[in-house]
Design a protein around this nucleic acid. Sequence first.
DNA 1: CCTATTACTTATCATTTGATAACTAAATAA
DNA 2: TTATTTAGTTATCAAATGATAAGTAATAGG
Lengths: 145, 145
Amino acid sequence: MDKSSLFHQFVTFTATVHQVTHELTQNVTVANITPLQYKILEYIKVSQPVTPTEISECQHMSLPNTSRELRKLQEQHLIEKYNDTEDRRKQYIRLSNEGDKMMEEAFACVEERFLQLIQHATQEDLKDIQHALSILEQKVFHQQD
Amino acid sequence: MDKSSLFHQFVTFTATVHQVTHELTQNVTVANITPLQYKILEYIKVSQPVTPTEISECQHMSLPNTSRELRKLQEQHLIEKYNDTEDRRKQYIRLSNEGDKMMEEAFACVEERFLQLIQHATQEDLKDIQHALSILEQKVFHQQD
DNA sequence: CCTATTACTTATCATTTGATAACTAAATAA
DNA sequence: TTATTTAGTTATCAAATGATAAGTAATAGG
């Protein structure tokens, strides 16, 4: 097995993933949300509750910039902050009802497009896809933090 | 097979892919290149020669903005433009020697990090990974242009 | 108790990226 | 030939994002 050719396949693959996810998430949001804010909300949605520091690390942005974006999201009533009872420096962020509703709608829209992408897949194909995703999660993309 | 749970797996997966590729490509470039310019060069590297219109479509950016970035890249002697002999409106873009060298170095750096990511993979794992990439390319991410 | 560290905020500035209007030149269609 | 379309450029403006300095408040370590 040539690791170098695997690398090239990997590069092509990730480029394609970027392109396709861009197409899937294009113009999904109703509210006045920037792409970065969408990513943050997406992360909160699947990982809540999260701290600003966690968002900062996962999204590769500085804490000041994270703080700014979270403030904007809070001003739009899409997220809520609450303090840790033990360590009062810490905050936890979660989606507000409004924010959750918005993300549910956004996900529904993306899901619809996703389903079109796999519309011709047989039951067998779906199993293959799920298995492939698991393999890559485990053996390549597994986050080592 | 529940397509909805597959969708959720897909969302998590793509988020992870974005995160990991960001880590892999962070600070790779020696030259004074923006992230967008890196993506453009990456695309040119694997698909050259390409036209500005193709870059524009693939990277989801307007032609004026594409033109601007290409001008900057040309000013840095990283790419070369040449005209189609048949249709003189058309241009083709390719990497200059300098640009190609730079991208080779960038890829080498990314590859090194990628190899660390899969350092514990057995020969069997590598085959699985390659197979998983192929499956997803074919059955999910296949571009329908 | 005092110092250092952690978690986060506010403010400010530079850079990058996106959007749009107006243009040139070449090719195609009528 | 004339009008339309295509491919790309230039210029300009707005918005999004990144970087950094300086601050507060709470906790942890000595």
